[in-house]
Write a protein that binds this DNA or RNA. Structure first.
Lengths: 211, 211
DNA sequence: ATGTTCACTAAACATTGTTCATAAATTGAA
DNA sequence: TTCAATTTATGAACAATGTTTAGTGAACAT
């Protein structure tokens, strides 16, 4: 049989290296992702990895980017699963939290690693921006349905929503000992408070609540 | 002059090592905190550090604990600065964000490093719990003043507040390129939304908004 | 066939945390 | 004071990390 062309084999090698790297991160965590371990798992010497990737960081970056695509996919499906705007918000929240639960190390890599997030969100990879647009879209739908209080900043609301999502996930990831309730409950409560408010409405005629 | 007693000198050495370590973290970031660098700055060999600390991790832990005390102090002062409950909440939020702005690396160490938060918040050091109690206390004050909607879970609200604080700070820390507004503005908007709610009140007689 | 490019490896380097044998300094008692 | 013991510190070494380099065949194009 004819041996596949060189370019093809090179792509295969790249893919195999990435697959093994992903496997290691999933099984043993991000800190266990060493060049020698990846190389051994892929059947190479450590030096060979540098023929396919510039860096260890480059490998991590690709892992993060593909993780971001997974997240985007999960969010897209969630957004499509509910027409009613509030239900869509909750579906998005559940999908976000679900992704972080299934791949905590990937989430950490994308959103909590010092060096990474900048290049992932600021780079030419638009998955991150697309994911955020999904959140923003849910609030636009909420607005179109007339469900929002007047004078809301839609972009600001989407940011606040993201802050809530990320706050819940990342706090649970690092301080799980201190946070007994599961992510879903934490987030559900927070989202309820956000949507319905916390302060009691002032009786008519009294002074307005501070802003 | 008599040389100070041994215990005293040993304490001094410990303190000096910690001070230099803190200096390095502040100046060059947490990743630059290597044993040899600390040792050189403190005028020791690397091996000497192990006479005063079990680990590099032990040094980092002490830095984190003292950082947590700083945060607790800042929050305490903020809480005392405002009697009016809503203003106290905002003061706490500003203090939290301000701490993270002044010592981002310390914040990262405490709340974003994989290994750390568990031991810092779960350990016998109560600064973390005390800090959280300050947040909870603000909501209790809010409740006592009759400013809360009926049937609110005070503990849950405090958690949500913390989630908001941490979400804002940590997202800004890792995705600053994607988040143009300063932390204070992000957090102020989020807090406004949380307190006053997002959804428009339904007209009387119609069905209740989804929960 | 032959020269060139490519894929790969073994070995090495610098840097990391950590340990160990050893030496110097300090201390408490004889 | 003298002397043994304890404490404090060091330099060298070890294992593991990311990365670079020289060298070696194999695959390729001509």
């Amino acid at each position: 049989m004819p041996s596949p062309p060189r370019a093809r084999r090179k792509e295969d090698a790249r893919a195999r290296i990435l697959a093994e790297a992903r496997h290691i991160v999933l099984e043993q965590g991000f800190e266990a992702l060493t060049m020698r371990r990846i190389a051994e798992a892929a059947g190479y010497s450590a030096a060979a990895l540098y023929l396919h990737f510039e860096n260890r960081e480059a490998i991590a970056r690709e892992l993060g980017e593909s993780g971001m695509h997974s997240l985007l996919k999960a969010l897209t499906e969630a957004a499509a699963s509910a027409d009613e705007p509030v239900k869509r918000l909750r579906a998005l929240a559940l999908a976000y939290v679900g992704f972080a639960r299934i791949e905590p190390e990937t989430y950490r890599l994308i959103f909590m690693e010092p060096s990474f997030a900048a290049s992932a969100l600021g780079g030419k990879d638009e998955a991150g921006a697309a994911a955020f647009q999904l959140l923003a879209g849910a609030f636009e739908a909420l607005d179109r349905a007339g469900r929002l209080r007047p004078g809301q900043d839609l972009g600001g609301l989407a940011l606040t929503f993201w802050i809530l999502l990320h706050g819940t996930v990342s706090l649970k990831l690092t301080c799980s000992a201190f946070l007994s309730p599961p992510e879903e409950d934490l987030l559900a409560a927070a989202l309820d408070s956000l949507l319905n408010g916390v302060l009691a409405p002032e009786p008519m005629g009294s002074k307005q609540p501070e802003r």
